Amino acid sequence: MTADQRVPLVAMHGITKRFGAIEALVDVDLHVHAHEVVALVGDNGAGKSTLAKMISGVLQPDAGMIEIGGEEVALPSPQAAHALGVATVFQDLALCDNLDVTANLYLGRELRSRFARDDGRMEESARRVLRELKSRIPSARTPLRNLSAGQRQAVAIARTLIGNPRIIVLDEPTGALSVAHTAEVLTHVQRLRDLGLGVILISHNMNDVRAVADRIEVLRHGRNNGTFDAATASYEDVLAAITGAVPLGRRTSSRHIAG
């Protein structure tokens, strides 16, 4: 492993966020490397989505530090995060049924030639991204309203690849999907890892987590409460950290993956 490979794509140190008297996050640490899927799990209100919004520039921490590629950064806006290689898919997907796949991929950042929108270049790029993701979407010109729920999620994931990101944050990507569509989306998550990206997967579904994650990070009441090797950790150990059956604190499995 080279020195560059040991540097996380993103590292969060001592992140704290308060909303009035409510402590949403307290002294939270998280790191993600290239070619790694890190699952962020915890009960409702554990702070998972708040942490995702910190990485995505939607919210700013009250205390702590964020590093990208080993450099301390400020993420005052989603645009700033995107410029540094962070792309996020939130649960609402933010897609438009009346547009086709290509138009959804480039919504708000359309390519232009000298005099007009460059539809040909956007479609060519959309086809390339769908191939990279190994998507089953039949055509880059298919209207979104004709796609299944799993294919819509694939469009949202494919949109993150426009602009060559380094870090992808997926917030409950399989939350409302059937078993077949879930399997399709999990294949896309694995493909993102194969492409060399760092992936943060927020999920309530432990089967999904164990299927694709390399490491599991547990949040409880806004605090770190466990780090587990997804390949070897037992369901019972992870569940105990989520529910509080073990003391609140930095609980680490015997097969912890070192950062």
Rank of each mutant, 00 (worst) to 15 (best):
residue 31 H to S: 15
residue 202 I to E: 02
residue 38 V to C: 11
residue 11 A to S: 15
residue 22 I to T: 14
residue 81 A to P: 05
residue 66 I to Q: 01
residue 77 S to E: 07
residue 136 R to S: 10
residue 232 T to G: 01
residue 174 T to C: 12
residue 40 L to H: 00
residue 62 D to P: 04
residue 160 T to Q: 02
residue 222 G to L: 02
residue 160 T to N: 05
residue 215 R to M: 10
residue 2 T to C: 06
residue 61 P to T: 08
residue 215 R to T: 11
residue 188 H to L: 14
residue 195 L to W: 09
residue 115 F to K: 02
residue 227 T to W: 11
residue 56 S to W: 08
residue 207 N to P: 00
residue 16 T to I: 11
residue 55 I to S: 02
residue 141 R to Y: 02
residue 157 I to K: 01
residue 181 H to C: 07
residue 62 D to V: 05
residue 58 V to C: 00
residue 249 G to M: 07
residue 17 K to Q: 08
residue 47 G to P: 04
residue 110 E to S: 09
residue 254 S to R: 14
residue 174 T to S: 13
residue 118 D to W: 07
residue 234 S to V: 12
residue 190 Q to S: 12
residue 96 C to P: 00
residue 85 G to T: 04
residue 192 L to C: 02
residue 155 V to G: 06
residue 138 P to E: 10
residue 255 R to Q: 13
residue 221 H to I: 00
residue 14 G to N: 15
residue 73 V to S: 11
residue 6 R to E: 14
residue 114 R to N: 06
residue 85 G to M: 13
residue 29 D to E: 13
residue 18 R to E: 09
residue 121 R to S: 13
residue 140 A to G: 15
residue 148 S to T: 15
residue 79 Q to L: 13
residue 172 E to L: 03
residue 69 G to Q: 08
residue 250 R to L: 11
residue 248 L to P: 05
residue 216 I to E: 00
residue 21 A to N: 12
residue 110 E to G: 06
residue 46 A to G: 09
residue 237 D to Y: 02
residue 51 L to P: 05
residue 52 A to D: 04
residue 183 A to K: 12
residue 66 I to R: 00
residue 210 R to C: 03
residue 118 D to V: 11
residue 112 R to E: 13
residue 37 V to G: 01
residue 233 A to C: 12
residue 199 V to A: 04
residue 187 T to Q: 14
residue 34 A to T: 11
residue 110 E to C: 12
residue 70 G to L: 13
residue 166 R to S: 13
residue 88 T to G: 01
residue 13 H to K: 14
residue 219 L to D: 03
residue 185 V to N: 03
residue 169 V to L: 10
residue 222 G to Y: 11
residue 184 E to P: 00
residue 22 I to V: 15
residue 254 S to I: 09
residue 46 A to S: 15
residue 224 N to F: 10
residue 189 V to F: 02
residue 201 L to S: 00
residue 140 A to H: 07
residue 215 R to N: 03
residue 6 R to W: 05
residue 228 F to A: 03
residue 217 E to I: 12
residue 143 P to K: 04
residue 45 G to T: 08
residue 223 R to N: 09
residue 198 G to K: 02
residue 55 I to R: 00
residue 110 E to H: 06
residue 130 L to N: 08
residue 21 A to C: 01
residue 160 T to I: 08
residue 225 N to D: 07
residue 203 S to Q: 03
residue 84 L to M: 13
residue 46 A to H: 06
residue 124 E to P: 00
residue 81 A to Y: 07
residue 221 H to S: 13
residue 20 G to R: 11
residue 49 S to K: 03
residue 101 V to L: 08
residue 19 F to N: 05
residue 58 V to Y: 06
residue 231 A to M: 08
residue 10 V to R: 03
